[in-house]
Structure formats: structure tokens, C-alpha cells
Nucleic acid binder design. Structure first.
Ligand SMILES: [Mn+2]
Ligand SMILES: [Mn+2]
Ligand SMILES: [Zn+2]
Ligand SMILES: [Zn+2]
Lengths: 145, 145
DNA sequence: AATCTACATTATAATAATTCTAAACTGTTG
DNA sequence: CAACAGTTTAGAATTATTATAATGTAGATT
């Protein structure tokens, strides 16, 4: 979204008023080197750790969805119970660790291009994404009982 | 699950008591030729159409999860808001129509095998599934304003 | 067969996730 | 410096899901 901390200007460009809630959320979400995955609850925790005033949960939802609509966040559905968001908005694949519930991005060359042979008339393809579910490999680990 | 309607015996085999709620849900879910996708709400509607007594929503959840645990239903996450279930329990790929919110199964030969090059040490792959999001192709359709 | 008991099942009540909307705020115009 | 028209916030309401108390059932025991 931006290299340094000029989120006020960036928000204005997007047509979003640079309120203190939004600027803080920009800092928490976009003022970092690497992209990452989070749930709304993760985000609320991150905000409250960095700020003493709390942002209402509804505002966190509103702002996340505003950023999503502008294309700076992406929603990822893995489980029905938790909704994940991703600051990496490109079309990309994921590993999901069913033990730790951790979501890991795939690199461009981790998975070969997926070849779709079927096409549905009148429909165009928006995205093709692979989800690889993994869990710890206990095949060697013998259990006593 | 079964060709004809002997769900009572089948439920017993699974260690589930053949209550009238469960037998009815078996009929609605498994007494058909083709597999299909549904939400909990879809299912509640289907049940109430076929039955005059209603089954409590919590029981529908309980039973769906019981069938899922026994391997006769599979949960599919597309959106955070709706949870889809699938009577096709095999590992398979999906097209998701973002206009109609319809979920369509991929055939074995609709998508070439996905080649995963990355492997995470200590973790084994449980499933590899592709989600293809499509929407109506309006590239020709000119809008007046 | 009637009673007891342990466990399974149901469905109401409680909780958690998400959205709605009324109130507060801000920027613009006269 | 009002008045007004959005915009934004956040408490209230809704919806999805789960926890648990009440109910039902299949043996075991008499
Ligand atoms: Mn969303
Ligand atoms: Mn489930
Ligand atoms: Zn990602
Ligand atoms: Zn399917």
C-alpha cells in the first residue's frame, strides 16, 4: 500500500477519510515488509496492543471490508467458523496446516500452473486457486496405547 | 450411502441410532442418484417440504456433523457467511459461480493433476483442491449508460 | 415385565460472528 | 459561522453456530 507512513494521503486518494481509526489500521496492516494472514480477532488484538483507545469491532469490520473493496485486502475461506484475510491480494495458492490452523502462502514456483480443461459457456474465469491441506506426519511416531 | 431405503440398518452399522429425524435426513440427503451441494438452510427447507413435523435446527447441525464425521458428508468453505456441504465426499475440485452462488463439481478430467513441488518437513498432504471462481462474461454485452 | 442405569439424542438456551442503523462527525456552501 | 449532505462510527440487532440441560432409549438387574 505504501512504503513509509504516509497513509493519510493514500487514504484520501482512495476516497476514504483519513480518520484515526483508519490510519491506525493502515499502520498495523500495511506498515511492514512481508504480507500476512489474519482473522478479525487477530487484528483487534494487534490494534489494542499498539493503541490504548480501542476501535469498535464494527468499525474494524467496516474498515477491513472497505480496504477489501479497494483491493488492498483479500478474504480467504478455509473453515466456516473463522474468516481469514490476507494482505497479499494477488491470486495465489495456500497450504493450510490443520494442526496449527496456520495459513501459508505458496510461492509462484511451489505449484505448477493449473490446467483447466472445462469451460462453462457464458462464464469467464476470475481466479484459480489451490488449497493444500496438511497435517503433521506421525507415520513413524509410535504410540504406546 | 445406500441404494434403496434401508437407512435404519445403515445407521445402526455406523453406530448411530436410527431416530426418525436421522432416517428422514438420510432420505433427503442420500436417497438420490446424483450428489449435490447444500447449505444448512437449504437442508432445513428440503426437510420441512417433505415432512410436516419439523426437526430442530440444532438437530440438523448435529446430524450433519455426525454424518460428516462418519465420512458421508464433506464441508466446503467458499464464503465466510455460508457453509456448504457436499454429498460427494471424494477429494475433488469446484467451480463457484459468483453471480448465482452455485457450486459445481469438477469431473476427474476437467482439471489436470496439480503438481505440488513444495513440501513442508514433518507434514503430510491431506488434500489438494482447486477452486475456480467464475462469473458471467459480459465482454460483448454493451451497456447504454 | 418392571426398574434401573448409562449413554445417546434432541432441542432450547447461550454464545460468537457479522451486519444494520441511528447517532456523531466532517467537509462544503452560502 | 450556520445549514446541509454525505460519511463514519459504534451500539444494537441479527444470524450462524455451539453448549448444555432435559429427554429418550437400549441393555442390565431384579
Ligand atoms: Mn467480505
Ligand atoms: Mn464441521
Ligand atoms: Zn495468502
Ligand atoms: Zn462438490
Amino acid at each position: 500500500m505504501a512504503k513509509n507512513c504516509n497513509f493519510i494521503e493514500k487514504l484520501r486518494e482512495l476516497g476514504l477519510r483519513p480518520t484515526k481509526q483508519r490510519v491506525k489500521m493502515c499502520e498495523v496492516l500495511f506498515n511492514r515488509e512481508k504480507t500476512f494472514h489474519f482473522t478479525i480477532n487477530d487484528l483487534v488484538k494487534m490494534i489494542s496492543e499498539e493503541m490504548n483507545e480501542k476501535i469498535s469491532l464494527a468499525t474494524v469490520y467496516n474498515t477491513v471490508h472497505a480496504f477489501e473493496k479497494k483491493g488492498y485486502l483479500k478474504e480467504i475461506s478455509i473453515n466456516s467458523d473463522k474468516s481469514y484475510f490476507d494482505t497479499n491480494t494477488s491470486v495465489h495458492h495456500h497450504f493450510y496446516d490443520e494442526d496449527t490452523h496456520e495459513l501459508i502462502d505458496c510461492d509462484e514456483n511451489d505449484i505448477d500452473p493449473v490446467n483447466i480443461k472445462k469451460n462453462i459457456t457464458g462464464k469467464k474465469i476470475n481466479s484459480v486457486e489451490v488449497l493444500v491441506k496438511v497435517e503433521s506426519d506421525n507415520q513413524n511416531q509410535k504410540k504406546f496405547n
